[in-house]
Amino acid sequence: MASLEPAGLLPGTLDLLILKAVSLGERHGYGVLLRLQQMTGQALTIEQGALYPALYRLERQGLLDTEWGTSDNNRRAKFYTLTAAGRRRLKSAESDWLRMVDIMGTALRHKPGEA
């Protein structure tokens, strides 16, 4: 059986995924990318070029905090952590997303003749 081709990200979902990835632990930019790929089982194509503008955007919005440190490879890197506002945003976005999935699932599972 041929493996599924990675799907493109839905608009607006990258920010949510990044918040989720960072919520699991402090990560530098490349580490966030690896965590996203791991979380999605390589099923989503994450454009590396879109990652950094999104990280800077979330930082500007006060959802992420940053600090320079040393990575496991002994390289200097910028590490991202979730702020309190970021945690609140992640919680509300998760809830919205799951609700939307429910609604969409219900709608798509609808069969002719059902009320």
């Binding site: 930019g29 950094y52 990575s71 490879n73 890197a77």
Partner: peptide, 16 residues
Amino acid sequence: TEMAEELRAHVAHRAD
């Protein structure tokens, strides 16, 4: 400076 350093770090980590 920060941008350049971060992107350099990304390339270095991926190359590792």
